[in-house]
């Protein structure tokens, strides 16, 4: 019987989107059966269009910046878009896969994506904006799988 891994993805920013997709795709390549439960802001990672997944230098003091940037500057309009653009360029330059590519690789490797129905209702998300390979469920449904895993991570 194959090993299993479960991940709970709760964040919807560019930096925090990578760990769940990288770990899920890698575990699947190693033969793990993988499920990712997307809840709260993590649901943003299931949108067909991921162009609004951004990174913010604000309240993110550990983010390496080319020049030191005071918080007062970080909050100016356009800073988030600029930081996102720069981060995406950096990722590309270093040969790191895009989120779309990693997500596709997960799906290709039969990683199962579960969207938290409660959060979908809470934020009044339109399911038609999400990719099709998603199952909707609740915490109990996820526990049915997570309770039997070798690795379970909260991101």
């Amino acid at each position: 019987m194959s090993k299993k891994m479960a991940i709970i993805a709760t964040k919807g920013t560019l930096d925090m989107a990578y760990p769940p997709f990288i770990l899920a795709s890698t575990a699947a390549a190693l033969g793990y059966e993988v499920q990712v439960f997307f809840t709260f802001y993590g649901l943003q990672l299931l949108r067909k269009d991921l162009s609004n997944v951004m990174i913010s230098p604000l309240a993110n003091p550990a983010m390496p910046m080319p020049v030191p940037m005071p918080v007062m500057v970080q909050m100016l309009p356009g800073m988030e878009s600029m930081a996102t653009m720069m981060m995406k360029q950096k990722l590309k330059k270093h040969g790191v896969a895009s989120l779309e590519e990693l997500r596709d690789l997960c799906l290709e490797a039969e990683v199962k994506f579960i969207a938290c129905q409660m959060t979908v209702d809470l934020f009044e998300f339109d399911k038609s904006e999400f990719i099709e390979n998603v199952e909707y469920g609740g915490a109990a449904m996820f526990m049915g799988f997570a309770g039997d895993t070798d690795i379970c991570l909260f991101v």
Binding site: I22, S25, T26, A29, H94, G95, V96, A97, L105, A109
Partner: peptide, 13 residues
């Protein structure tokens, strides 16, 4: 060449 983790592994698979 030029690809970063985890792409070499995923492509190998």
């Amino acid at each position: 060449s030029g690809l970063s983790c985890p792409l070499p592994i995923l492509k190998t698979k």
